[in-house]
């Protein structure tokens, strides 16, 4: 599941509309302390956190506790000197109040240029400038809080921040309609990115080799009648066999057919284990 977090409803609404336009039905979660929607196929979740670092961190932690996600994405507006309604991927976050830096992983492809982000505790009166000549900065109020909370649940390589430029520090001009319009302008691109992440999750899962017959293994391990160390050793032998492409079902069936399992005692279980190691390792 891709969990998306925005600070304000006007930032979330264009994404909701874009997802719906693409046939993805987002259903509002039962009312509670969190305003959130979940797609019927469980691929996407969208939550409104409220503005500020603490609100973002609390909502992120709350949602990820309830709903384990494959990716956490923070989407929203930020101040910057780039043209309004241009969207960027954040490669470095600086928390202004502490001076700490955070680095989201940049492993997954995203169709946006990169910017650094400075998270400040108050609306920015001016853009933050640049980290280096090649890396201009944006300013927001949530990024660092979101990242720190999400990193408790997910690999830092599965945390993505996307920011659309709303203004160059003229906060008075930022109305809900203005934010909505800016986010609507980038919603299609952001949704493409979310779809790409969701497809990557599918492909990743399909590629993972899984050990078949977990119930069969569990039964054999229990029937060994041994210590936890013996059970773990048998588990590793069976895992290695399965992952090496050997026929696990055949091997376990043979153990039952020749009377090795169930082992009547711990001593017998130890003998079975030793024989198995001699035979196949």
């Amino acid at each position: 599941m891709i969990a998306v977090f925005t600070a304000l409803y006007p930032e979330a609404e264009p994404l909701l509309l874009e997802l719906r336009r693409r046939g993805i039905q987002m259903k509002r979660l039962p009312s509670g302390s969190l305003t959130a929607w979940r797609s019927k196929d469980d691929r996407y979740m969208l939550a409104v956190t409220g503005s500020g670092e603490i609100a973002a961190a609390i909502a992120t932690a709350q949602l990820l506790t309830q709903f384990p996600a494959d990716f956490a994405v923070n989407f929203g507006t930020a101040a910057g000197s780039d043209p309004a309604a241009s969207c960027f991927r954040i490669c470095k976050i600086t928390e202004e109040t502490t001076g700490r830096d955070f680095y989201p992983g940049m492993v997954w492809a995203a169709p946006f240029a990169e910017r650094a982000l400075v998270t400040v505790p108050h609306p920015a009166a001016a853009p933050a400038g640049t980290v280096s000549p090649s890396l201009p900065c944006l300013t927001d109020m949530e990024g660092a809080g979101f990242f720190q909370a999400a990193a408790r649940f997910l690999s830092t390589d599965k945390i993505v921040l996307l920011k659309a430029v709303s203004d160059a520090g003229e906060t008075a001009a930022l109305t809900p309609d203005r934010l909505r319009a800016i986010c609507a302008a980038v919603a299609a691109g952001v949704t493409d990115c979310l779809t790409g992440l969701s497809e990557a999750v599918d492909a990743y899962r399909a590629e993972e080799e899984t050990i078949e017959e977990p119930a069969l293994m569990a039964k054999a391990e229990a029937d060994l009648n041994g210590s936890e160390a013996m059970r773990l050793r048998l588990h590793r032998i069976l895992c290695w066999q399965a992952l090496s492409g050997e026929d696990l079902r055949k091997l376990v069936r043979k153990l039952y057919e020749d009377g090795s399992l169930p082992a009547g005692s711990k001593k017998k279980g130890k003998e079975v284990l030793e024989q198995l190691e001699r035979d196949i390792l």
């Binding site: 830096d101 492993v107 890396l135």
Partner: peptide, 28 residues
């Protein structure tokens, strides 16, 4: 390449909870 300035290599290299499998597909 896109250059990202950092204070110390450990700030990036020693981050907790990195996905080594994914990183190996896209080395930084």
């Amino acid at each position: 390449a896109h250059v990202i300035p950092i204070r110390h290599y450990k700030d990036v290299f020693n981050r907790s909870r990195q996905d080594i499998t994914a990183q190996s597909r896209s080395l930084a």
